[in-house]
C-alpha cells in the first residue's frame, strides 16, 4: 500500500474505476465478513451489498489520507453489525452458536473464538494475518498508529487464548 502522493493516486484510481476496485478488494471483504458472520455464503451476499454501496458512494469520497480500502472495511463492518443484530432479532442465539460443545474439535473452537473476538480485534487479525498487510498498512486502514495496531493484535491474541481456555482447549 503506497504512501503520500502515490496513495493519493491509488485512491483516485480506485475511486474512478469501480471494476478495478471490485477485483482488488472483493475477495478480502468476503474473507473478512466470513469470519464476522460465520458463514461464507452470507459473506458473499453481504460483500456484494458493500460494493453496491461502494458503486454509489465511493466516487464522492473526499481524500482524507486513507485508502478506499479503509472505507470498504468500515462499511463492511457496519453491515456485519447490522446483519448480526438482524439475526439476533429473528432467531435467538442457540447454544451451538455461543458455546463450543465439550467434544468439539480444536478447529471449531478456534473458529468460534475468532468469530467472538471484538470487531477491531477481528479486523487487525484479518488484515495482518489473512491479507498479509504490514502493520504500516494495517494502521492506515484502521486509522490508528502502528503501535496501537500492534497492541490490538496482542489483545486479540490474549482474548483468543482466554476464550479457548474457557472452552477447555489448551493452546500452544
Amino acid at each position: 500500500m503506497e504512501e503520500g502522493p502515490d496513495a493519493y493516486r491509488v485512491f483516485r484510481r480506485e475511486q474512478g474505476d469501480f471494476e478495478a476496485l471490485f477485483r482488488a478488494h472483493y475477495p478480502e471483504i468476503v474473507r473478512y465478513l466470513a469470519v464476522r458472520l460465520g458463514s461464507r455464503d452470507d459473506a458473499l451476499d453481504l460483500a456484494s451489498e458493500v460494493f453496491a454501496e461502494a458503486w454509489r458512494r465511493v466516487p464522492g469520497l473526499q481524500w482524507r489520507g486513507r485508502p478506499v480500502r479503509a472505507w470498504l472495511y468500515r462499511v463492511a463492518g457496519n453491515m456485519a453489525v447490522d446483519e448480526l443484530k438482524r439475526r439476533r432479532r429473528l432467531q435467538p442465539l442457540t447454544a451451538d452458536e455461543t458455546v463450543a460443545p465439550d467434544d468439539v474439535d480444536t478447529r471449531l473452537a478456534l473458529d468460534l473464538a475468532l468469530r467472538s473476538l471484538a470487531p477491531e480485534h477481528q479486523l487487525v487479525v484479518h488484515l495482518r494475518l489473512v491479507e498479509g498487510l504490514t502493520f504500516d498498512e494495517v494502521a492506515r486502514v484502521m486509522n490508528r498508529s502502528v503501535g496501537a495496531c500492534q497492541m490490538l493484535m496482542l489483545r486479540a491474541a490474549r482474548s483468543l487464548r482466554a476464550k479457548l481456555e474457557a472452552e477447555g482447549v489448551r493452546s500452544g
Partner: peptide, 24 residues
C-alpha cells in the same frame, strides 16, 4: 503467534473467479 496463525488460517480461503464475476 501460533494461536493467531492457526485461527486465521481457514479464513484465507480464496474467492473463486466465478464467485467474483457473479458478484461483480
Amino acid at each position: 503467534a501460533a494461536l493467531l496463525v492457526a485461527a486465521a488460517e481457514p479464513a484465507r480461503r480464496p474467492v473463486t473467479d466465478a464467485e467474483l464475476e457473479r458478484a461483480l
